[in-house]
C-alpha cells in the first residue's frame, strides 16, 4: 500500500514540468528575417550606385555651413515649440473657461491658424511691410510712444518664429485640451472640496495627470515642428535645408546634400524619441504595471530565488 503510494507520488512529481516556456513567436522571426534581407538589398544598391556620391556626403556631413544650419533649425524648433506650448496651454484653458468671450477668442484663433497653410502664413508675415510699413506703439487715441519700420522687427528669423508659433500653437491647444478633458472629473471635484482654487487645482492636480495623455501627441508635434522648419527655407532663412540648397545651387551635388539633410533630421527625431521615453516615465508615476518582458523576467528571478 505505502510502496504503491510512494511510487505514485514519485511518478506524479516527474509529471510536474521543470519550466514553463513562453510560446515561440515564429511570426516575429520570419518578419525579422525578411526585413534584414530587404535592408541588405537596399543598402547594397545604394552603395553600389555611384550617383549617391558617398564621398561628397562624408565631406558635407560635418561642414561648417551645414552645422550652422543645423543649429539654426534646432534654435528655431525650440523657440517655436516653447512659444507654442505656452500659448497652447493658455488657449486650452481659455477654451475650457466659463468666460464666453475668452472661449470664443480661443476658438476663433484655433480655427484661423489651423486653417491657414503655414506656407501662406509665412509669406504673408514676410511681406507684412507691404501692409503696414511702420509699426508703432501708442496710447489708444493718444500720443505715439515709438515707431519702427516693419522690416526691422519682422526679420526673416522673426517671421519664421512668429509664423511657426502661430501655426503650431493652434495644434498644441487642441492637444492640451484633449489632455485636460481626459482627467477624471472626480479629481477636480475632490480638489475643489478641499478648498483648492482653480489655478492651484489646474497646476497641481489636473495638469500633472493630463500630461500622461499630452506627452505622446506633443512629442509627435515637436517632431513635426522640427521638420516643418524646413518650410521657412522659402523665405530664405538659412536653416538646415536652405544651407544645403545654397551649396548645391553652386556645386550641383544635389543628392548627397539632400542625404546630409535627411541624416540630420533622422538624428534630431531619434533624440526626441529617446527624450519622450524619459518624460513619459516621469508622468506615469502612480500607474501600476510593468512591461510584459520585465514582469516575466522578475517573476522568474523571484521563483528561482525561492528555490
Amino acid at each position: 500500500m505505502t510502496v504503491i503510494s510512494d511510487a505514485m507520488t514519485a511518478r506524479d512529481k516527474n509529471d510536474i514540468p521543470s519550466r514553463i516556456v513562453p510560446r515561440s513567436k515564429y511570426g516575429t522571426w520570419i518578419a525579422g528575417a525578411l526585413v534584414v534581407l530587404f535592408v541588405f538589398l537596399a543598402l547594397r544598391s545604394a552603395f553600389a550606385n555611384d550617383n549617391f556620391a558617398w564621398p561628397a556626403f562624408g565631406r558635407y556631413l560635418f561642414s561648417e555651413s551645414i552645422l550652422l544650419g543645423l543649429v539654426r533649425t534646432i534654435e528655431l524648433a525650440l523657440i517655436a515649440m516653447a512659444l507654442s506650448i505656452l500659448a497652447g496651454m493658455a488657449l486650452a484653458m481659455m477654451r475650457q473657461s466659463s468666460n464666453r468671450v475668452l472661449n470664443a477668442v480661443a476658438g476663433t484663433y484655433i480655427w484661423l491658424f489651423r486653417a491657414v497653410p503655414l506656407l501662406v502664413l509665412l509669406l504673408l508675415l514676410y511681406n507684412l511691410a507691404a501692409l503696414y510699413p511702420e509699426i508703432s506703439l501708442s496710447v489708444p487715441f493718444g500720443p505715439i510712444l515709438f515707431t519702427m519700420e516693419t522690416n526691422t522687427v519682422i526679420t526673416v528669423a522673426g517671421a519664421a518664429i512668429i509664423g511657426l508659433a502661430l501655426h503650431e500653437s493652434a495644434y498644441c491647444a487642441e492637444i492640451f485640451r484633449a489632455g485636460l478633458v481626459s482627467v477624471d472629473h472626480g479629481q477636480r471635484e475632490a480638489a475643489e472640496a478641499l478648498g483648492m482654487s482653480s489655478w492651484l487645482m489646474t497646476r497641481r492636480i489636473v495638469l500633472p495627470q493630463a500630461m500622461r495623455a499630452i506627452v505622446p501627441p506633443l512629442t509627435n508635434q515637436f517632431v513635426s515642428v522640427v521638420k516643418t522648419t524646413s518650410i521657412v527655407s522659402v523665405i530664405s532663412m538659412p536653416e538646415l535645408l536652405y544651407s544645403a540648397q545654397i551649396i548645391y545651387a553652386r556645386t550641383y551635388e544635389t543628392i548627397p546634400l539632400l542625404l546630409v539633410v535627411t541624416f540630420w533630421y533622422l538624428v534630431l527625431t531619434a533624440v526626441l524619441t529617446v527624450a519622450q521615453h524619459y518624460v513619459e516615465k516621469r508622468f506615469n508615476r502612480g500607474r501600476a504595471g510593468l512591461s510584459d518582458y520585465t514582469a516575466r523576467k522578475l517573476s522568474r528571478l523571484t521563483l528561482e530565488a525561492g528555490k
Binding site: 472626480g186 508622468f283 508615476r285
Partner: peptide, 10 residues
Amino acid sequence: FQQFNLFSHL
C-alpha cells in the same frame, strides 16, 4: 466621495 477620488499621481 463614493469613488474615493484620490489624486492618482500622488
